[in-house]
Simulated scan of single mutants.
Amino acid sequence: MVVKPDWLRVKAPQWERVGNVKEVLRDLGLNTVCEEASCPNIGECFNQGTATFLIMGPACTRACPYCDIDFEKKPQSLDPMEPINLGEAVRRMNLKHVVVTSVNRDDLPDGGASQFVRCIEEIRKLMPQTTIELLIPDLCANWEALETILSARPHVLNHNTETVPRLYRRVRPQGDYQRSLELLRRAREIAPWVYTKSGIMVGMSETDEEVREVMRDLRVVDCDIITIGQYLQPSAKHLTLHEFVTPEQFEAWRIAGEEMGFLQVVSSPLTRSSYHAEQVQALMKLYPKEM
């Protein structure tokens, strides 16, 4: 058994604030990846009044062994009220930056692209100044669906590569490393104004050089932002944790990423793809792109 080190201790949340956010989510019938994927930062983010919304779920059509989202339930038909309720939640929580992600919906012809678009439209109706970040699946290489999503003009388009190529068959058996890179390449080509972003987990036996190779691949497709965080095994039935990576190694990757030309590198044990995502607003002021 690998013992959790001190640097992975998370501060206890202020439950009054957490309760307020949960009340909004339950009242509007919304899911968050914070809860469904057992994110270790749930207390901090809920305390700050933020959450990463999980649409079209909570059931997922893929069975990634590292993920705590339920893949045994049968996916339901899309809820036409979900985008409206999401916009209302953003208004009630007064979010300046919102992250919207989804489960994989390989059962849908467009992978759920139209639902992403409706969510953006409803958020903008009530909160036109809020910056919007989407964390999308690979859409089974349906590039028309990608164009549909980008036509709604999100500010940030995130798609996680998740791990290094050597570990894909074990970590992400229904995914494809080159397909993920192609999605990010096409996003840059279709929408040069969007900030592209990707993230990987570490601690699953990847080497330092393999991580750096992924970083270089992401720069080849002109990815702007990268997040690197520690994989934490949700339960005994999930993918086995190989090691806890030291903060010093995360810092080395941060420095390497900046030298490679990423506009932003967020690399630490508790980093997740949407952790402190609102910091992109400062990035947008430093490196503006024409919308």
Rank of each mutant, 00 (worst) to 15 (best):
K73C: 12
Q76A: 12
P80M: 03
S151N: 14
C60I: 01
P75S: 06
R62P: 10
F116R: 03
P137C: 14
C140Y: 10
A145I: 02
I123N: 07
E88K: 15
G87Q: 11
L150Q: 05
G87V: 10
H155M: 14
I132V: 06
V98G: 05
P75I: 10
G111E: 14
E82V: 01
R92A: 08
A89N: 11
L139Y: 04
P109E: 07
I84T: 04
D68T: 09
M93T: 00
E82T: 01
W143Y: 13
L134M: 04
R92D: 05
T163H: 12
T52L: 14
A113I: 00
G57M: 00
D68V: 11
D107K: 10
E133Y: 05
A145G: 08
T50E: 07
R166H: 13
C64E: 09
P75C: 14
P109F: 07
E121Q: 15
D68F: 03
V156M: 04
V90L: 02
G112T: 04
C64G: 15
P65G: 02
A59W: 05
L108H: 01
R92Q: 12
C140D: 09
V164K: 00
S102Q: 06
P83W: 00
W143V: 14
P83M: 01
P137T: 06
P58I: 01
D106P: 08
P75V: 03
T148W: 09
V98C: 08
G111H: 11
D70W: 02
I55K: 02
P154H: 02
A63F: 04
P75L: 13
A89S: 07
T101R: 02
L95R: 01
E72Y: 14
I123R: 05
Y66K: 08
P137H: 11
N160H: 00
F116K: 02
D106V: 09
L86M: 12
M127Q: 07
E72I: 09
D70V: 02
H159V: 08
N104E: 15
S114G: 15
N85R: 12
R105T: 10
P165Y: 05
D68N: 11
L86H: 06
I84C: 05
L135E: 03
V100G: 04
Q115C: 06
P83G: 06
F53P: 01
R170M: 14
P165R: 12
E122C: 06
N94T: 07
T148P: 09
Y168T: 10
R92W: 07
C119W: 00
G111M: 12
N94L: 15
V156Y: 05
I55P: 01
T130Y: 01
F116P: 06
E72A: 10
A63W: 02
V117M: 06
N104K: 13
A51C: 06
G112V: 12
T130V: 06
P137M: 06
P58R: 03
L95S: 03
D138R: 04
Q115S: 08
I120V: 05
S114E: 09
A152Q: 09
L134K: 01
F71G: 07
P128W: 14
